[in-house]
Design a protein around this nucleic acid. Sequence first.
DNA 1: GCACCTGTTGGCCCAAGGGCCAACTCGACG
DNA 2: CGTCGAGTTGGCCCTTGGGCCAACAGGTGC
Lengths: 205, 205
Amino acid sequence: MTDMFTVYLVDDDPGVLKSLSRLLRAKGYDVKPYSSPQVFLEEHDEAIPGCAVLDVSMPDLDGLEIQDVLTTASGSHRPVVFVTGKGDIPTSVRAMKAGAVDFLTKPVKDQDLFEALSRAEAMDAELRRLRSELDVMRAKVRTLTPREREVLTHVVAGRLNKQIAGELGTVEKTIKVHRSRMMEKLGVRTVADLVRMAEKLKLSR
Amino acid sequence: MTDMFTVYLVDDDPGVLKSLSRLLRAKGYDVKPYSSPQVFLEEHDEAIPGCAVLDVSMPDLDGLEIQDVLTTASGSHRPVVFVTGKGDIPTSVRAMKAGAVDFLTKPVKDQDLFEALSRAEAMDAELRRLRSELDVMRAKVRTLTPREREVLTHVVAGRLNKQIAGELGTVEKTIKVHRSRMMEKLGVRTVADLVRMAEKLKLSR
DNA sequence: GCACCTGTTGGCCCAAGGGCCAACTCGACG
DNA sequence: CGTCGAGTTGGCCCTTGGGCCAACAGGTGC
């Protein structure tokens, strides 16, 4: 469970689905095969670490459209590897521009697929790490009272307690209290750490 | 001169070179046409704002190799737009992975080329802005004495003067002096600004 | 040898940060 | 009506940061 990496395999050709499933399972991947894009999208759970291996040309919903849903809609940016039998250059370029990990042509060389999946796995892990880090920080910020949040922005802007007091129409002592509680809640002890946290959350800009 | 954007056009087909030159000049671009990749690379000046429009397949030195030189070697990462008459999917994917702005197939639609150049221009401008910002900051850091640099790293790490003194085997008073001079030289007045500067320079990590 | 830079330290003083205890107001909630 | 969270303020005291002036040592370069 801990080192699980799921490959969502979507291809309307049962033969391809079967052979790729076997290949990837043998490699240790947890493969979820789908012959229907719709079913895949319904069952797809972005909370699970993994990537999608999509056939480009499928009836109803083609690979690029799925990619669009996976990246635009959720925001989780599930890594996508394309596999195609009859693609063209404009399609591959569009897929890559949209952030695809790779765009492979059938017959797919095992080595190429493995390398693409390896990069997809690294990318997914990194994105999840970053995302969870941000989630933790945002959760802390949410515990701040409105006043504490105001003080936060002024502190990361480098203002003195006295100046903050002036701008918020109160006195320095009050700011000190808010500031202290804010630092405590965010779990930082120095202004340096606070600023770095704010930068990661893109506050202050 | 101010809003100059140069398009380095490299194609071994004189006809293509001529027609694209006319098209782009009419659009207001400063076009520099080359039928020889070697000559282009020799004359290429990365200090000039612009982008490269390369034919993929050329004798001796193909487009991908030129791209490699432009991005790997210099580090300036000149935006590249590919144009090709007989490319294939793997080639286009490789080009896009290597950071190409676009990969267009001949006959190139004017609209596609203009859009690609527009994005190339925006990218080039942004990279130059970022680069010059970093250059200015790095220049300031270079004016620091070794001791001041040490103090810098400790300050952005959130350490107190007293702690820094202990770790550097000196007294607090000395650190205060280095610190003050360091802030002065870097042109920052608050720790918050100092930390942001250090983050942009990827110090402290 | 002298000027200059770098690093060092001291004294003095003031400004700013921050902890602890106590207290008050106001609005929401039960 | 009483409680509670949020915001507020005061006093007290200690720690930190930081500016100004002065001084000294060691090394470099003219």
